[in-house]
Design a protein around this nucleic acid. Structure first.
Length: 207
DNA sequence: ACCCAGGGTCATA
DNA sequence: TATGACCATGGG
């Protein structure tokens, strides 16, 4: 996949906080819409924890509107920030904490689920874990490695076990799966010849 | 006019 | 536990 699609340079964003905001805003929404929302926030210089926390909720809603679900997402940002304030809005503070502890705390925040939490952990905090998404389940179900009825944790454990790697590989892997999902598997329901199938066959995981 | 996109929550049976 | 409804915008 890497040789075909090249480096994906994920996550788009200049700072850990921008990455975090993007992870929240991108829930069930195309990234193009999220970029507009982030561009709006940037114009108002609100892409910093303190500024965003101090902003008028109605202003924030209007700025993130292109990303959809703006009422919920404005509240999610607020809830995240109220948790983050306990670390004095400092990513260095977060880095002192254990990955599993942070993950539990993030998931405790309303409307931040496992995928959003893991995206923040991998792409903003550079923790070594695999991010599961709908493409992952679809693609790996099709090639016969997953059933399709596994839960998030189960799928994640599968990848941690059979596709173990370093943080940089998890970073690229998730991005490539998304790229591949948008590219091929949407148009071609049966990916018999796809590179992932071949990879799994080589590893003795399907066939 | 439909369907879906880099999810998650809540009510119901 | 397992479905369904709901959140909302923008592009194909």
């Amino acid at each position: 996949m890497y040789s075909h699609y090249g480096p994906q340079d994920w996550w788009p964003g200049d700072t850990p906080f921008e990455i975090t905001v993007g992870a929240i805003l991108t829930q069930n929404v195309a990234w193009v819409n999220v970029s507009k929302a982030i561009a709006n926030l940037k114009e108002e210089k609100l892409v910093t924890p303190k500024k965003l926390a101090g902003a008028d909720p109605d202003i924030v809603k209007s700025l993130i509107r292109p990303a959809g679900y703006y009422n919920q997402k404005a509240q999610t940002l607020k809830d995240f920030l109220s948790w983050f304030s306990r670390y004095r809005y400092s990513f260095s503070m977060l880095q002192k904490r254990d990955t599993d502890e942070l993950r539990r705390e993030l998931i405790m925040i309303n409307r931040i689920g496992p995928e959003t939490a893991d995206s923040i952990l991998l792409y903003a905090l550079e923790r070594k874990l695999f991010v599961v998404d709908a493409y992952t389940k679809r693609i790996f179900s099709r090639v016969g490695v997953l059933n399709g009825d596994e839960g998030y944790q189960q799928v994640q454990e599968f990848f941690h076990r059979d596709f173990a790697g370093e943080m940089q590989e998890y970073n690229e892997y998730h991005a490539l799966i998304v790229a591949h999902g948008k590219d091929v598997c949407k148009k071609t329901p049966l990916c018999d010849q796809c590179c992932i199938k071949n990879l799994c066959l080589r590893r003795g995981l399907s066939g």
